[in-house]
Design a protein around this nucleic acid. Structure first.
Length: 773
RNA sequence: GGGCGGAUAGCUCAGUUGGGAGAGCGCUGCCCUUACAAGGCAGAGGUCACAGGUUCAAUCCCUGUUCCGCCUACCA
């Protein structure tokens, strides 16, 4: 970014304003530091790794009574050279009386105080005494502040023992000479040896701990004392906590809310400076005249580091532009701060900086705040929380209403994908193999809340097939689209059309509701089910005969319905499969003025389409057809052979439905269908099949394997028997009948009745079959 | 250490006012039936991790255990 770039302008504006309010300060603090990259690291840049280490128990003799000593435990014996105190718990009867006395710090000529600190010390852990090294440990730094202890840095920026620091820390010269210039890993055994030789090392035990490592180079990070820039975060965090507490911002799924609140309430000042090249350079300048003593020359060792920096004592001038002269000395020789900003500092401004802020643009008015932010959990704190804080601070309003936390996509082993780990699944390659829409649909369908996604190729392949299915349906429709189309009122449409519209209506409603609840998985499921298993499997099959005679009224009307319904379906599917739906919708017959599908309205529910009675009739048809097909498979009739199928309706309503749908029944079951009472069926050569209250008979012709059929019927009867026994068992329980809701009990009775009827039918089929064998 | 999530068909995963266990892929059988074999039709397959508890009734609620994963933390 150039300095005139809008984003940079916003960053500088924010930096300067925060600084003016005292919310940005510069100071010497401990930060996570990579001794190899020579830069500060933010929390997100540090990876923690379980490591086997050692716990060293070291004896610190009392200064005025060397026969008595405190034993402290540490995982980092080399840092003891920088100790400036030993802490015990003020209420600990073992040590209480020692507070205020001094111990002699081994390997040095220093004496350091014993302090009481209830925060740092856990009485139960180790010996109950702990060393304080403010320059090399975060907690010790805090403890050092509480007790006004000096900070003795004994490591340099490369995490080597620093000769000057060792000198200042009054380390014995022999010790000093043996360790100076050594990296931590080499110095540690030397220190261990020295302590051993003086019999001050009480014991060494194995110890598990989590070591922080630089995300880039895997070097163990060091808490490092250096001048850095910070944001005083509490004044920004408080409003951001409130915004979520009072519901102005909703986190979805809700379970992450506590995570957010917990983190925000316990937030620490934000180190925003980085010692790297790439980034927004901090808008601060130092007068060379006034800060001569604070200038630190550093050799450009790697070629990526600037050659100077300033100590914590230096006085910066923070401004939007380079100052023309120094307000103190009037000189005009400046060096700009060499540090750049943490990348999340500018990211935090994204919701408004991208809209032109600090200018009051029309985009800013229109799009701030936005409705939903979709993001991954891993940056909830680093990005989302900071956008909320900065948005509230500079815009006076939340940057978004809903935060949708989506799942993390992991690799096949369930590992988190990361650039540095190299286990990234390349979306471009997946898209090449299966298509962009298939990948998108897969991710939507697997986006169940609170659960991560292990990307499974089989699922993607399945949705690739789904896309293919839609292509083929489109081909079918285009094939029959030619010709006059006649639009009629919904009530006058055919059975198939009315059923399909009723189902489409339901699908629109379900999909919309699911989207409103951020249940993309449910929405994808509804669409898949409707398009494949209702629209393609049943509707398109049902209308085929009508389309055959192209000139007929029925064909004219069906063509209109086909195109209308498919176009609506495509719009409904468009957010999930944008490319395919656009392509097909352009191919369908349409007005030349019609917009791209992406800006057409999303379908809405039409109550006129709802047809419960039609759906019930369809259910009867589906039961019949499925059973006829099963019978065909059971009797191993070839698909081409025409069957004779008898159907007995349960009542007059069903009989009417079946008669009305007679043509469809014959078409879909490829059979001659006879609707008649069972009593009138031929007594011989008819196989009876029963399921869900419907009984059909299939004419038995030719040489068929009746044994297979018998096995099936016996098995089905056994299953029915088992279920009846289970239900009767429950009904026999007086407590069940007394305490269960009446409708549940009634339902149980109803199920028994149905099953019993089924059983008797099966028994008669069985008897009949045995006689035929 | 603390917190959170997961364990359901061979695999990847759905499944809430507790009451008959689902999908996709894979598998078996039949079928290239003029949209589609990346397909159609029909099937097989599950003591819902384990042990207790609450309840008339538990995949679902509670407790504990085992295993896996994530976040977080200074246990020196």
């Amino acid at each position: 970014f150039t300095m005139d770039d809008g984003l940079s302008k916003a960053v500088r504006e924010v930096f300067v304003r925060l600084h003016e309010e005292g919310l940005i300060y510069r100071g010497e603090r401990l930060i996570n530091w990579c001794p190899r990259c020579l830069t500060a690291l933010s929390d997100i840049e540090v990876e923690h790794e379980e490591t086997k280490g050692k716990l060293y128990h070291i004896r610190y003799p009392l200064a005025d009574d060397p026969s008595t000593s405190l034993i402290v435990a540490t995982t980092r014996p080399e840092t003891m050279l920088g100790d400036t105190a030993v802490a015990v718990h003020p209420d600990d009867p073992r040590y209480r009386h020692l507070i205020g006395k001094k111990v002699h710090l081994p390997l040095t000529t220093r004496e350091i105080p014993i302090v009481g600190d209830p925060i740092l010390v856990d009485r139960e852990f180790g010996t109950g005494a702990v060393k304080i090294t403010p320059a090399h440990d975060f907690n010790d730094f805090e403890a050092g502040e509480r007790h006004h202890l000096p900070r003795l840095a004994i490591l340099d920026a490369h995490a080597r023992l620093d000769p000057e620091g060792l000198q200042k820390a009054a380390v014995e010269s022999t010790v000093r000479e043996s360790v100076q210039g050594l990296p931590v890993s080499k110095a540690r055994p030397k220190i261990e040896e020295q302590l051993q030789a003086r019999e001050l090392l009480v014991k060494v035990e194995d110890h598990k701990m989590a070591l922080g490592k630089c995300y880039r180079c895997k070097t163990v990070v060091e808490p490092y004392l250096s001048p850095q820039w910070f944001v005083n975060i509490q004044p920004l965090a408080d409003p951001a906590v409130k915004a979520v507490e009072d519901g102005r911002i909703r986190i979805i799924p809700e379970s992450w809310t506590n995570n957010y609140l917990g983190w925000m309430r316990d937030i620490k000042d934000w180190c925003i400076s980085r010692q790297i090249w790439w980034g927004h350079r901090i808008p601060a300048w130092y007068c060379r005249q006034c800060n001569e003593d604070s200038t630190i020359q550093t050799a450009p060792t790697t070629g990526t580091k600037r050659s100077y920096s300033f100590s914590a004592k230096a006085t910066p001038i923070v401004a939007l532009r380079a100052p023309t002269h120094c307000p103190d000395c009037g000189q005009h020789d400046f060096l700009q701060e060499s540090d750049v900003l943490d990348t999340w500092f500018s990211s935090a401004l994204w919701p408004f900086s991208t809209l032109g802020w600090p200018d009051q643009t029309s985009e800013l008015k229109k799009f701030y705040p936005t409705s939903t932010l979709v993001t991954g959990l891993d940056i909830l704190f680093f990005w989302v929380a900071r956008m909320i804080m900065m948005g509230l601070k500079f815009m006076g309003d939340v940057p978004f209403r809903d935060v949708y936390i989506h799942a993390l996509v992991r690799d096949a082993e369930g590992q988190k994908m990361s650039k540095s780990k190299g286990n990234v699944i390349d979306p471009l390659s997946i898209m090449g193999d299966y298509g962009t829409d298939a990948l998108r649909f897969t991710l939507a369908s697997m986006a169940s809340p609170g659960r991560d996604i292990k990307l499974a190729e089989e699922r993607i392949e399945g949705y690739r097939n789904f896309a293919n299915k839609i292509w083929n349906a489109a081909r079918f429709i285009l094939m029959y689209a030619e010709g006059i189309r006649e639009h009629v009122e919904i009530g006058d449409r055919s059975f198939a059309d009315r059923w399909m519209f009723s189902r489409l209506n339901r699908t629109i409603q379900d999909t919309t509701t699911a989207l409103e609840q951020y249940r993309f998985d449910h929405a994808a499921g509804y669409l898949y089910q409707f398009i494949w298993h209702e629209y393609c499997d049943w509707y398109l099959e049902l209308v085929k005969p009508a389309l055959q005679d192209k000139a007929s009224t029925e064909a004219r009307r069906t063509r209109a319905t086909l195109i209308q319904s498919f176009e609506i379906t495509l719009r409904l599917l468009h957010p999930f499969m944008p490319f395919l739906t656009e392509e097909i919708s352009q191919a369908l017959p349409h007005e030349s003025t019609q917009d791209s599908i992406m800006i057409r309205p999303f379908p809405t529910r039409q109550s006129a389409w709802e047809a419960k009675d039609i759906e019930e009739q369809f259910a009867a048809l589906e039961r019949f057809v499925t059973m006829a097909r099963a019978g065909r498979a059971l009797l191993a009739y070839p698909p081409g052979a025409r069957l004779n199928v008898f159907a007995a309706a349960k009542g007059p309503d069903e009989r009417m439905s079946l008669e009305k749908l007679h043509r469809h029944l014959e078409q879909l079951s490829r059979a001659s269908v006879h609707i008649a009472d069972q009593a009138t069926w031929p007594s011989q050569k008819v196989l009876r099949l029963v399921a869900e209250g419907l009984t059909i008979g299939i004419g038995v012709e030719g040489d068929v394997d009746l044994q297979k059929v018998l096995d099936r019927i016996v098995k089905q009867a056994a299953e029915a028997m088992k279920e009846v026994k289970r239900l009767e068992g429950k009904l026999a329980n007086v407590e069940f009948v007394a305490k269960a809701p009446a409708d549940v009990v009634a339902e149980h009775r109803q199920r028994i009745a149905t099953l019993t009827h089924e059983q008797s039918m099966l028994a008669s089929s069985e008897q009949q079959l045995r006689s035929m064998l």
